[in-house]
Simulated scan of single mutants.
Amino acid sequence: MTFFDLERPKHAYMFAFLQADGHLRQGPGNKGTLSVGLSARDAPILEEFQRLCPLHNSIRYRTRSTNFKAEHTSVVWTVSAREFREDVQALGLPAGRKSAIIAPPIIPFDGASMAANRER
């Protein structure tokens, strides 16, 4: 099953965002998660991702002290569904550290949408 049509602007943007700021963790067996953590002020981005994802997913908030701020609130969007994780992996999002190996997908995608969102 494919959850992404990268020729649709919102899907292309979400996948590029996951490549940049997401983390795909593989656990033993079929366990694992895809997650994105941002500052709470950017919660609308993750809320839109939640609407686009057809499977069970969650958004949670966390407030804690950091080196930069006494009380920082962040938001994390998480998807645990194996089918969704397999789909993003098939498109080229690797599990674990990705900084040296991330690349554009090898299937057609809406690059104009990605560029327009990057310039904002």
Rank of each mutant, 00 (worst) to 15 (best):
N57Y: 10
P9Q: 08
R82M: 11
F68Y: 14
G92I: 13
R97L: 02
E47C: 10
P105R: 09
Y61H: 15
D87S: 14
F17E: 10
R25P: 03
H23F: 05
L91Q: 07
T66V: 01
L46W: 01
P94L: 01
R64T: 11
K98N: 11
T63S: 13
R60E: 06
Q26L: 06
P9K: 07
A95K: 14
A70N: 14
I102S: 04
P54Q: 11
H72Y: 10
S65N: 09
D5V: 10
P44T: 08
T78E: 05
P105G: 13
E71W: 13
A43N: 04
P105V: 04
G29V: 01
T78P: 07
A81D: 12
I106N: 15
V76S: 06
F109P: 05
T33E: 03
I45K: 05
T78Q: 05
E71G: 07
I59C: 03
K69R: 13
E86G: 07
S35L: 12
K69V: 07
I106D: 15
H11Q: 13
F49W: 08
H11N: 13
L38F: 07
G32K: 06
E7Y: 02
A20M: 01
Q50S: 15
L38W: 03
W77F: 15
A112S: 09
S65V: 06
E83G: 14
R85I: 09
L55G: 01
C53F: 13
L38T: 05
P105S: 09
E86N: 14
L18K: 12
V36T: 08
D87L: 11
G37H: 05
Q19A: 08
R8A: 06
F49E: 01
M14R: 03
